[in-house]
Design a protein around this nucleic acid. Structure first.
Lengths: 107, 107
DNA sequence: ATTAATACCATAATTTACAAGGTATAAATT
DNA sequence: AATTTATACCTTGTAAATTATGGTATTAAT
């Protein structure tokens, strides 16, 4: 049980990196993101995702446009901005450093 | 600035793994840990470390003994228990999975 | 006796993810 | 025409964690 908690903790803070990574490969709306992240075993729920997307948009990392849905209300498609792309690169560097750090401590 | 925040976020939840990793190589007291983690570029502050050590001790992952200091008050040396060692192995597995997940999303 | 260095710990505030619930749109069903 | 179903976005309250801050205690040196 404790391990589950630890895994959840580890995932925190990496979500941002994962979301931007998915968007770097193509625009997506919320459900796309949830599906793709779940496929990669990175679990996210709506209540976590929506505020995060809004925050990234407010920071200028993302933009969005409305698009009709084949069924139901319109979808908000998010797109990585130039600023977001730059930021993602920095995140990737930080992530690599972190992996290196853990390896160092681990031996 | 935003990147710094993100880096801090990423570090969260990985601290536990790092602390146990350091202790797996030998007993240490709080300042030892801070020094060694800082050397590996994993920044920790006292206010984070002490509650974490206490929690891990309460979970039975760590034990401790008092030892005289050459200067100043006695030191609390923490030691990994058998349970802690088992737990650390599980954390390592979780960490490897997480690295794999991020790699998948990243391409 | 006072100061300085070391060390442990507790409390309050901020931040974050998550659970839960709410609102709205469009198509299909009755 | 009205209701149901599926989809989609969003908000609020709660629980958990880190961090900032400050406090207490011990030892040695001044």
């Amino acid at each position: 049980m404790e391990v589950e908690n630890a895994k959840a903790q580890m995932r925190k803070g990496i979500l941002e990196l994962c979301i931007l990574s998915v968007l770097s490969k193509g625009d997506a709306y919320a459900n796309d993101l949830i599906t793709k992240l779940k496929e990669a075993k990175m679990i996210v729920v709506e209540g976590t995702l929506y505020p995060l997307l809004t925050r990234q948009k407010n920071l200028g990392l993302l933009s969005y446009r409305w698009e009709e849905s084949p069924q139901g209300p319109p979808r908000k498609y998010y797109s990585l901005t130039d600023k977001g792309r730059t930021y993602l690169n920095e995140l990737h560097r930080s992530w690599d450093e972190l992996v290196e750090t853990v390896n160092t401590l681990r031996n």
